[in-house]
Computed example of a mutant assay.
Amino acid sequence: MKTKTNTVLEQHQELRTKCLVYTRVMGYHRPVESFNIGKKGEHKQRLHFKES
């Protein structure tokens, strides 16, 4: 099933740039794409919050 968003993204594929997501792991930053499958799953389950 194609959604409107998927259709728009496919139409403008040549204009898109790759975005790397970094996270802080044990005191340094690492790109999420370099994680193994288990670590990627843990990253998706993290809760985001704003400290007041």
Rank of each mutant, 00 (worst) to 15 (best):
V32I: 05
T5R: 14
K39Y: 06
G38M: 10
T3D: 03
L20V: 00
H12S: 10
G27I: 03
K50W: 01
M1R: 15
M26P: 03
N36L: 02
K4L: 14
K50V: 06
E51T: 08
P31C: 04
Q11S: 14
S52D: 08
H48G: 06
V32P: 02
T3P: 03
V25L: 09
M1I: 03
L15K: 14
Y22H: 13
H48D: 05
K18V: 00
E14G: 12
H29F: 06
M26F: 07
K39D: 02
L47C: 01
H29C: 03
T7S: 12
V21G: 02
K40H: 11
T7K: 15
V32M: 04
H43P: 01
G41S: 08
S34D: 10
E33T: 05
L9Y: 07
R24M: 09
F49M: 03
V21P: 01
V32G: 05
F35N: 07
G38E: 10
H48K: 12
S52R: 13
P31Q: 10
K39I: 00
C19S: 15
S52M: 06
M1F: 07
T23N: 11
K40M: 14
R24L: 08
M1W: 06
V8Y: 13
E42F: 07
V21L: 07
K18W: 00
K4S: 08
V32K: 09
R16L: 15
Q45D: 11
Y28K: 11
M1V: 04
Q11E: 15
R16W: 07
L20T: 02
K50R: 13
G27T: 05
H29V: 00
K4F: 12
E14L: 15
L47Y: 04
R46Y: 04
V25C: 03
P31W: 02
E51G: 09
V8N: 10
K40L: 14
Q45S: 09
K50Y: 02
E51K: 15
K18E: 00
T5S: 08
E42I: 08
H29T: 01
V8A: 13
S34A: 14
N6A: 12
I37E: 13
